[in-house]
Design a protein around this nucleic acid. Structure first.
Length: 491
RNA sequence: CGGGGUGUAGCGUAGCCCGGUAUCGCGUCUGCUUUGGGAGCAGAAGGUCGUCAGUUCGAAUCUGGCCACCCCGACCA
């Protein structure tokens, strides 16, 4: 293994790819466009799942599981949704293999075993779920239905990047059904808030909440809400979406309920999801040229303790002092690794745990023991300090909280420094090359949005929920506009 | 899917133009010395050269198909 990572400043995507591999998060697999998530990477995802799942439960949702396969006839029922995903669907056409008579030892698809109806591998589950909901809903008493599922989905992408875009990815998808439009819209907004809270408080990544434009809207939705985050190269990454589906799926799948007046009405729906793409956001928002920087709340290991010793006697002396601290840290809910592996020297371990983003490193040698101190090094700031052993566990607990906040603040500062109000087309063209979010007036038309995309590769990431009303003119067309939207190049 | 590139030991590579079964570094194993920022010395193991076919006395090397990955486009969470 060579020593350093590529530099972010020299080649951002190479830095990202190398970091994912070297930090043991994931690797490419033998399957085109699909990755293997390795144990270290998966343990971060598990922490995300745990936190999100708890938040879903707190807001009244329960988990269920629906099939991977969707019969084509169901898939195509909601036309806009089907059209939107048609180009990237994997399709199962046969159900059996057999020995190839012309090629001993090899298998072939058995032409006799063609399915009567093809099965689409879900790119998303609205179709199969709404088809099921039809059977579950008769009366307003059956509503609301608040269900989430953790699942894999497949979207046959042309070009893939680990975590950011893979052919198969893991996600959660919430699917809810409601009696009124308002209730469904409230749900859509509530879940967007849940996502924003999670990404900001757990991942330490600031987000902008907003509406998608018609062009960027989920196929089949009436309205798509999203959270957008800024990566260190100034590009935007959509971190989560929450859709108000109106009655579109209810109509497509004939899902009606009898209201209190005894009249039949179509059900109102929402769906919302975040995926393993969040891993990409986490990596690109905080990490540096030495490796990952993980926020404590998602770090598989909070503190690594590296003993520095000569011979077994030293090690035993260090252990005698350290083991009670390890125990105390664990009792405070802190994950500790005491690395006394003799095969590696301290310097190697320092570099290794920096690569893996462990938030705190404690180094202890004989000299420290004599002085009753240890050395604490912070991954986020790369600073070191010498602390008394006395009371170290509670100090660490507080410091981890501080790191969680500091990482967020650093990302927020970066975003503030790279967000610009832009009012002329010349300034737009200049700034978009430098990166960052451009806050601009827009005339509200798809034509202008597409023209800008064609000219600059920038898209409207969102119309912020908190956009202030102000008089202005569209940065491209000069037509009147009442608020600013966020333009950026995006992942 | 279009353009460009790559594939040789666990990882990174030389060799390929001009055919004769393979270079170097890191890692691994053994031993000793080491241990406060990626240790040193000595010895050793490890390769159907992505894959399938073709040309040839002989293919990592030449030809063709296929697979995978990377970069740039189009598409997208």
């Amino acid at each position: 293994m060579s020593k350093g990572l590529p530099k972010r400043s020299e080649n951002y995507s190479e830095w990202y790819n190398e970091l994912v591999k070297r930090a043991d998060l994931a690797e490419n697999s033998a399957v085109r466009g699909c990755m293997v998530i390795k144990p270290y990477g998966f343990s971060i995802w598990e922490k995300m799942q745990r936190a999100l799942d708890d938040m879903f439960k707190e807001t009244g949702h329960t988990n269920a599981y629906f099939p991977l396969f969707v019969p084509k006839s169901l898939f195509e029922a909601e036309e806009k949704n089907a059209e939107g995903f048609a180009k990237e669907c994997a399709v199962v056409t046969h159900y059996r293999l057999k020995s190839d008579p012309n090629n001993p030892g090899k298998l072939m698809v058995d032409p006799e075993a063609k399915l009567e109806e093809e099965l689409v591998v879900r790119p998303t589950s609205e179709a199969i779920i709404w088809n099921t909901y039809k059977n579950w809903i008769q009366s307003h008493r059956d509503l609301p239905i608040l269900i989430n599922q953790w699942a894999n989905v497949v979207r046959w992408e042309m070009r893939t990047r680990m975590f950011l875009r893979t052919a198969e990815f893991l996600w959660q998808e919430g699917h809810t059904a409601h009696a009124t439009e308002k209730e469904a819209m409230d749900e859509t907004k509530q879940m967007l808030d849940v996502y924003a809270t999670f990404v900001e408080e757990w991942m330490s990544v600031p987000v902008i909440k907003g509406f998608k434009t018609a062009n960027e809207r989920f196929a089949g939705a009436e309205e798509t809400l999203c959270i957008e985050a800024m990566m260190q190269d100034g590009k935007a990454l959509q971190a989560g979406t929450s859709h108000f589906l109106g009655q579109n799926f209810a109509k497509a799948f004939d899902v009606k309920f009898q209201n209190k007046e005894g009249k039949l009405e179509h059900v109102w729906g929402t769906s919302w999801g975040v995926s393993t793409r969040l891993m990409g956001a986490l990596i690109m928002a905080h990490s540096d040229d030495l490796g990952l920087v993980l926020p404590p709340k998602l770090a598989p290991i909070h503190v690594v303790i590296v003993p520095i010793y000569k011979g077994d006697e030293d090690l035993e002396a260090i252990k005698a002092v350290i083991m009670p601290i390890v125990k105390e840290l664990k009792s405070l809910g802190i994950t500790v690794k005491f690395d006394d592996n003799d095969a590696y020297r301290p310097g190697w371990k320092f570099a290794e745990y920096e690569l893996k983003g462990v938030p705190l490193r404690m180094a202890v040698g004989m000299r420290d023991l004599q002085n009753g101190v240890i050395e604490l090094a912070r991954r986020d700031t790369l600073t070191k300090e010498t602390r008394p052993i006395e009371g170290i566990a509670t100090y660490i607990k507080d410091l981890l909280d501080e790191i969680q906040t500091a990482i967020y603040q650093k990302a927020l500062n970066f975003r503030q420094e790279n967000m610009f109000k832009v009012d002329t087309w010349a300034a737009f063209e200049e700034q978009i090359e430098k990166g960052g979010f451009l806050l601009c007036h827009w005339d509200g038309t798809s034509e202008t949005e597409e023209k800008i995309k064609e000219l600059t590769k920038a898209t409207i990431r969102c119309i912020p929920l908190d956009a202030v009303e102000e008089e202005g003119v569209c940065v491209y067309s000069g037509k009147p506009s009442s608020k600013r939207v966020v333009f950026a190049r995006a992942y």
